[in-house]
């Protein structure tokens, strides 16, 4: 079944906003089950990179492969390789995403939020979806909130619902875009716990984060991004204890000494 070497692969991914180049030739290969944390100063292009992976940002050039299949290909001269829409949609659904601001649908209850996409996009049976959604809610510890509207929940609870919503589509890769940055400090723990559980279950995860503790504990690999490039990458031990790149060193010093 798994006839691919890397579950996610990007080749020469670049992105420009006008003359400003935000991503410069990023190459990354991710194995199934790997947890990758992306750290770096703000403006480094971490979020942009993550969002380019599922087309929320349009890349200027480069190739993206999902499970060995070409998902996106754009050349510098703006030529785009046409990829079958169905394949593309299928590959897109292999990725689930959690946002910094959760982006739950405020007019739907928690349960409806989770069930919406499986029913509307995958056309799955409503009752089955509901049952699975309740399972997911139990998993994130919010089963009793199923019929609440999102705005009645705390930020941490909302983010857990958002994770459940993404998981309901049964993705193979989860993308987290600073999932705890908008949370009050005391609410961060629950969300991180859910993410840890997910990592332990063998989910492939790309996490843009400022939670160095989480990165140290959970990540298989840490990428340090600065100025649109991956400045340094390695195991958590390497990055946090023996960083080689002076930029990594100064970044870590600045955040750890605060």
């Amino acid at each position: 079944m798994d006839n691919f070497e890397y579950i996610l692969e990007t080749e020469h991914v670049s992105k420009n906003f006008g003359s400003l180049s935000v991503l410069k030739d990023i190459n990354l290969k991710v194995k199934k089950g790997e947890v990758i944390c992306i750290i770096g100063p703000s403006g480094a292009g971490k979020s942009t990179y993550l969002r380019s992976l599922n087309q929320l940002e349009k890349i200027s050039s480069g190739k993206i492969f999902i499970k060995g299949d070409l998902f996106l290909h754009r050349e510098k001269d703006h030529t785009v390789e046409r990829i079958d829409k169905k394949t593309q949609q299928k590959l897109l659904l292999e990725m689930g995403m959690c946002f910094q601001r959760f982006n739950l649908f405020p007019h739907k209850t928690v349960l409806e939020n989770i069930c919406l996409a499986p029913i509307e996009v995958k056309h799955e049976d409503k009752e089955t979806v509901k049952k699975e959604a309740m399972e997911l809610l139990k998993k994130v510890g919010l089963a009793e909130k199923a019929n609440e509207f999102p705005n009645r929940l705390s930020g941490g609870q909302q983010q857990r619902v958002a994770i459940a919503r993404a998981l309901a589509m049964k993705p193979e890769i989860m993308l987290f875009d600073e999932p705890t940055s908008a949370l009050d400090p005391e609410l961060v723990g629950d969300v991180l716990q859910v993410m840890k559980d997910l990592a332990n279950d063998g989910m492939t995860m790309l996490v843009v984060t400022h939670e160095m503790g989480f990165a140290k504990e959970v990540a298989d690999r840490v990428l340090f991004m600065a100025d649109g490039i991956i400045a340094e990458e390695g195991t958590p031990d390497h990055i946090f204890n023996h960083p080689e790149n002076p930029r990594t060193q100064s970044f870590l010093r600045s955040i750890l000494n605060v």
Partner: peptide, 16 residues
């Protein structure tokens, strides 16, 4: 904008 993005990330079409 986040609402559009969340919907897109979940694979919902524009019309949906």
């Amino acid at each position: 904008k986040g609402q559009h993005e969340a919907a897109k990330a979940l694979g919902l079409s524009y019309s949906k």
